[in-house]
């Protein structure tokens, strides 16, 4: 920092000093991997039924649908926004599919209806936040009520259950042996989102917007467009999750996926995404999703009810965010 006194000779600046940056990122994921191994080991030791391919395969259904949305949510949170309406989008998309099914639509058309409903909801959120500059946390609390409210208006206390047999594949089908369709979809989406966030200029723009939207705008990033696209993505993934969940349950009630939004946000934050925006990775979210799924499954095997698992997840969330902040004061950010 003694610029004035040093000689004005061009200096060579190395690209990187070792792997400090990389190390920091990795350390978060290392922590998650350690937790994952611990959870896996404890489960394996405490229940003879845990290390069974079919049981493990069943366990994946605990997280696959939520994780699909969590990938898009992670990008949105990195960009400094949030979408609390995702679970309500599932409800609306599922209702739309149920309605279409009663009209006699076939499986391909039902999937299209589900995805398009998701996209439309995402576009509406995107419009409110990106075009009208509403704070996303409250705007999406509003659309959350609106979307699920429409499901309630349509369905009331009834349910749609008349889905074609072939539709069930998306939630109950297996691609090979114990590998379910949902698990494959989860893996494919994880890869796609990893590429999108970490290997494309769109992903870079997401980080720029999340760290400083003003400076990003001043650097020529079309900030509103980036945010709109991200809301479209959360809408679309919610639509995909709606297809899988509806197919798995074989029925639609307006209360479907109730409370998922907070579980998905938990998954994202546990995955190391800064809730204030600017940093995070898809790899972390994948690990967090698997951890949450295995914890649920393990507790289930031990006949511990799901609600108790929530204590564990809640503590994990606070510990995993809080401990690094207590240890190194520099990682704190003033909001």
């Amino acid at each position: 920092m003694s610029d004035a006194s040093s000689t004005p000779q061009p200096r060579h600046i190395p690209d990187t000093l070792g792997t400090r940056w990389g190390r920091r990122l990795r350390s978060w994921e290392t922590l998650l991997i350690a937790v994952l191994i611990a959870v896996f080991t404890i489960n394996a030791l405490s229940s003879p039924y845990f290390l069974n391919a079919w049981n493990l395969s069943d366990a994946t259904f605990n997280f696959t649908e939520k994780a699909m949305i969590a990938f898009a949510m992670a990008m949105l949170v990195i960009a400094g926004e949030i979408d609390l309406s995702v679970a309500a989008i599932i409800a609306l998309a599922s209702t739309a599919m149920g309605h279409a099914a009663t009209l006699g639509f076939g499986t391909p058309a039902l999937v299209a209806v589900g995805l398009l409903t998701g996209l439309a909801c995402g576009a509406f959120n995107g419009l409110l936040v990106a075009r009208f500059n509403l704070p996303s946390i409250v705007a999406t609390i509003g659309t959350m009520s609106l979307f699920r409210g429409i499901s309630f208006i349509v369905l009331g206390d009834k349910a749609y259950t008349e889905y074609p047999d072939s539709f069930a594949f998306f939630g109950q089908g297996y691609v090979w042996w114990v590998i379910s369709f949902e698990l494959v979809l989860f893996a494919v989406l994880a890869l796609l989102f990893w590429v999108l966030l970490h290997r494309t200029s769109f992903g870079r723009a997401v980080y720029a917007v999340g760290n400083n939207p003003t400076a990003a705008l001043f650097s020529g990033i079309r900030v509103a467009r980036v945010k709109f696209m991200l809301f479209l993505l959360t809408g679309l993934t919610s639509g995909i999750a709606a297809v899988c969940l509806t197919a798995r349950l074989g029925s639609t009630r307006p209360s479907i996926a109730f409370g998922w939004e907070l579980e998905i946000v938990t998954m994202v934050v546990l995955g190391g995404v800064n809730i204030l925006g600017g940093s995070g990775s898809i790899g972390g979210v994948v690990l967090a999703a698997i951890i949450m799924g295995l914890v649920t499954f393990g507790f289930g095997l031990m006949n511990v009810p799901g609600i108790v698992m929530s204590i564990f997840i809640g503590l994990l969330l606070i510990a995993v965010i809080g401990i690094p902040r207590l240890v190194s004061p520099q990682s704190r950010r003033v909001e």
């Binding site: 061009p10 600046i13 990187t16 000093l17």
Partner: peptide
């Protein structure tokens, strides 16, 4: 380099 930036590393 053209601007004679003083930094430890580009990352």
């Amino acid at each position: 380099a053209r601007l004679d930036l003083r930094a430890a590393a580009l990352d």
